[in-house]
Design a binder for these strands. Structure first.
Lengths: 398, 398
DNA sequence: GATAAGTACATCAGTTTGATTTAGAATGGT
DNA sequence: ACCATTCTAAATCAAACTGATGTACTTATC
């Protein structure tokens, strides 16, 4: 299932340029902690003062930015500071996890305005499941009180691998029944909003870039620890997707590093009782938390299982960081909050000892700034990223 | 030594659009084996017929393309086929290898017009070494008989890691004395041409993309086997460079996979005699060839050393291919021609057995289509890529 | 004459250039 | 202390410019 990529690159034209420059300016304003004035924008973007002025007018008219006070220099007319208006636009994010479906509404600066959770349904009747999901989305929007036209669209994050052409999940390890469900297109039809879909790890990485630990880095790795694990890789400001949209999968590392595999190892070594053997997606995570609790309590076997895991992850990320020349490694995902303090002491020295760290540049390691909802937040960020972020790719003709 | 990357993205303007569309068209013509007509170009690029017509006029005027016959349909005016004129422009490539410096002149379609080799000098006097190199370049150009103004520029490929800001090599493992030599800027000063510099593995990957095994793929890995080894990674048509321009280095794999390390292993295991212990960069390669000859002759210890090496490489590339979702893995570099037939039988099944191959898409494995000179050819391709290729990045203001 | 390829010309959209207006601080005289 | 003047940098206005597009027209072959 390879995507038919255009053999040659497409051209561009003026309307694209206009839209692009608009997002460049919005992006710059959004990224500056205290907003930016028009002259500062001109300097930052390389555009002329006049162009920036025109674009700002449009952004103000649409309510995407607001004028927020003045910043006086020593002499001359003081600069008028522009900031994004969080309530100017919103995006909806849906994270389909094997255990739970999370829905969030995000504002322009990446703040969670409203959220909702439901247990992941078993798919018996595709149409019914899809109808339930779109009802949930409608309820979410109604409860948030945001007018429909302020919502840019809907993002869906799913466990990989995905089929980006069909907009569906492919052989989802833990999502029996969801295969071949044309999630993207059907949700768009049902809700009336444009829908974008991506792997949850990629979505999470974009969330970190927009509003998390990587706002200031365009070269980082995001390591997602959930039911499965995977990486979101951003290099030179672009998110790696690869030939079939499935970049970020982890080769050999994955098989013996799933939550399942670790819980099973723990049971085999007698650290956890047989009754902890997981039968559903949620249970593996609960058993894992028991293992973490044991490690915390000083159980050395539990500790060694987790240390071994951390070591494998550490070697994997430092190899990946060397390969793509990252300056930052961010860990996150639903189970990270429980593991962070056990993992970091193992991983930090491994990364620091890697031959290219220090020789070329520092490589920072950090835990996510976003919480459990990083998948759903990321899903919504997919929409923000697609519609508001300045990707040169968006200049090209369709 | 982190590069100061712009915190925000830059805007674009009309002149950039003009240049970009021009390279889009040239790129499309170049990539089509038999050339393309104007209507076909319009369809391929998404530009209007008129725009394509205007651009073609400019390209014809500049001598970059030529009209080459007509392609008649059943009825109507036949299409006039446009092809690139190989002699329209040229680029110079220099590969600084620990053992040898290779100089080439490349035409527009990536053909080697002229080439030259010199043993790599020891740097005792920086100025003198640089003067020697620029003299060599001048001689190369004189011998090729190409007028100066037809030459777009000079590309330099060096072993990593590099300092892309200073345009110099950094702690080169085998290039004692070359550190801190401001190669890029000094060569530009001496020759008068713009000079671009990159790691040899990245240059080689670009060569494969322009005129080698990857002309038809925008998602591939290039694995370079030379004195050192490294990868060139291309994802969604962009070459990964990373935060300091040093993407493609190989973490743990590298240390025990250099030519040196293998020859030493062979000596330790008594497969090669102690007299084969390498003292210079060239000798390690010669000793390695002896090892290959032994393996070919049926020596099982030699064979097992090489198989072990191939296995490590195979696992590394398949992990990397999974991570970045490649559809193609290309092997090359100076020692590949000797190793290919021993490596492929080991590597192929490893890649094929990787969990994501087949599940998502095929991943082809192949040897380079270019020869020993891939580094120098790549260096010249850096120039072609920078000046003629349609990279959306080039749309952005400086 | 029919058909498809390619071009001339006017139009349109977005950026740039240069001149102009605007808002506040600094100056200096009373 | 007060106030008009001057100065400076920010922001905007108006006109020019550039490159893509749509429509109508010409060209080349069957």
């Amino acid at each position: 299932m390879t995507i038919d990529q255009p053999t040659v690159r497409r051209g561009t034209n003026l309307p694209r340029v206009g839209d692009f420059n608009e997002s460049v300016v919005l992006d710059a304003i959004r990224r500056a902690p205290d907003g930016l004035s028009r002259v500062e924008l001109a300097a930052a973007t390389g555009l002329s003062a006049q162009t920036v002025s025109n674009i700002c007018r449009r952004l103000l008219d649409r309510g995407l930015v607001v004028e927020a006070g003045k910043k006086g220099g020593r002499v001359g007319k003081p600069r008028t500071v522009l900031q994004v208006s969080p309530g100017g636009s919103f995006a909806i994010g849906v994270h389909l996890d094997p255990a739970v479906v999370t829905y969030v509404v995000l504002d322009l600066i990446g703040g969670v305005v409203h959220s909702m959770r439901q247990p992941t349904p078993q798919v018996v009747d595709q149409a019914e499941t899809l109808a339930d999901m779109s009802t949930a989305v409608q309820r979410l929007v109604d409860e948030s009180g945001i007018p429909r036209e302020r919502i840019l669209g809907l993002g869906v994050a799913v466990p990989g691998p995905i089929d980006p052409v069909a907009g569906a999940v492919v052989e989802p390890p833990q999502l029996a029944g969801w295969e071949r469900v044309p999630l993207r297109d059907q949700l768009s039809l049902a809700t009336g909003w444009p829908v974008v879909m991506d792997k949850d790890v990629i979505a999470a990485a974009i969330a970190e870039r927009w509003a998390g630990a990587a706002v200031h880095s365009g070269n980082f790795l995001f390591f997602y620890l959930g039911t499965g694990s995977g990486m979101g890789v951003v290099v030179n400001d672009v998110v790696l997707r690869g030939v079939s949209g499935n970049a970020g999968e982890i080769g050999g590392l994955d098989a013996n590093c799933t939550t399942y595999a670790l819980v099973e190892e723990a049971i085999e070594r007698g650290v956890l009782g047989r009754e902890k053997a997981p039968v559903g997606p949620g249970e593996a995570e609960r058993s894992l938390l028991d293992l973490v609790a044991l490690a915390d309590a000083g159980d050395s076997s539990a500790r060694s299982i987790i240390d071994g895991w951390a070591r494998r992850v550490g070697l994997g990320v430092s190899a990946a960081a060397t390969l793509v020349d990252s300056e930052l490694i961010v860990f996150g995902g639903p189970i990270w909050p429980h593991l962070g303090r056990l993992f970091l002491p193992v991983i930090n020295p491994i990364v620091a000892a890697s031959p290219f760290v220090g020789k070329m540049h520092e490589t920072a390691v950090t835990g996510t700034a976003l919480g459990d909802d990083v998948g759903a937040v990321g899903a919504a960020c997919l929409v923000l990223d697609q519609t508001l972020s300045a990707r040169p790719q968006s200049l090209l003709l369709a």
